[in-house]
């Protein structure tokens, strides 16, 4: 057991019981057991862009999460956050810097905009860094398999047994 650390987390929608139920509903309920809980780091940005639609100029803003391990971008629906005490060994460390993540966020948002609107334009993407935010994943052991369960959406992803 190592020291606890207070970090910003996305408020969980799926607790341990929920995770077991989801995995159980796919595999065998009686054999499913929580293996551990992992907190996964994201750089959280609020991105704002200008766009001209048929309804005139609009400013659109969206949550953008950059995976702090591999720099991949994703947009996210709004989520609530809370400060939690998390044991250090449950936290995955960030590997990208906030600067790299900021660039990735701008690039991701501009790319998504251009693709959706099918236009070459400067959307004036600005980002506001809201810091590191962690999302909890449940690792559920079922048979010889470890299943990753997203504590926000309940989505699952099977991994090889560790």
């Amino acid at each position: 057991m190592t020291n606890g650390e207070s970090v910003l987390c996305m408020r969980e929608q799926v607790d341990a019981v929920g995770a077991l139920r989801i995995v159980g509903s796919i595999g065998d309920t009686s054999k499913a057991a929580i293996e551990r809980k992992i907190y996964y780091p994201y750089f959280w940005f609020r991105a704002r862009c200008r766009t001209t639609t048929l309804l005139g100029r609009r400013v659109v803003s969206a949550n953008c999460l950059i995976d702090a391990r591999n720099g991949l971008g994703a947009t996210a629906d709004s989520f609530e956050t809370e400060a939690s005490m998390v044991e250090a060994d449950a936290l995955l460390a960030a590997r990208t810097t906030v600067g790299e993540a900021d660039r990735a966020a701008r690039r991701f948002v501009a790319h998504s905009f251009g693709r959706s609107l099918r236009m070459l334009a400067d959307f004036g993407v600005t980002t506001k860094a809201l810091g590191l935010v962690y999302k909890a994943f449940w690792l559920v052991r079922v048979g010889g398999l470890t299943v990753l369960v997203d504590s926000m959406t309940g989505s699952v992803y099977p991994m090889k047994a560790q």
Binding site: I26, I38, R69, A74, F137, L148, Y157, P158, K160, Q162
Partner: peptide, 17 residues
């Protein structure tokens, strides 16, 4: 499990592993 998998979690899963 493969059928139920959400592939958008694949990059995170690979990092966790």
């Amino acid at each position: 499990f493969l059928r139920a998998a959400d592939s958008s979690l694949a990059p995170a899963a690979s990092e966790v592993a």
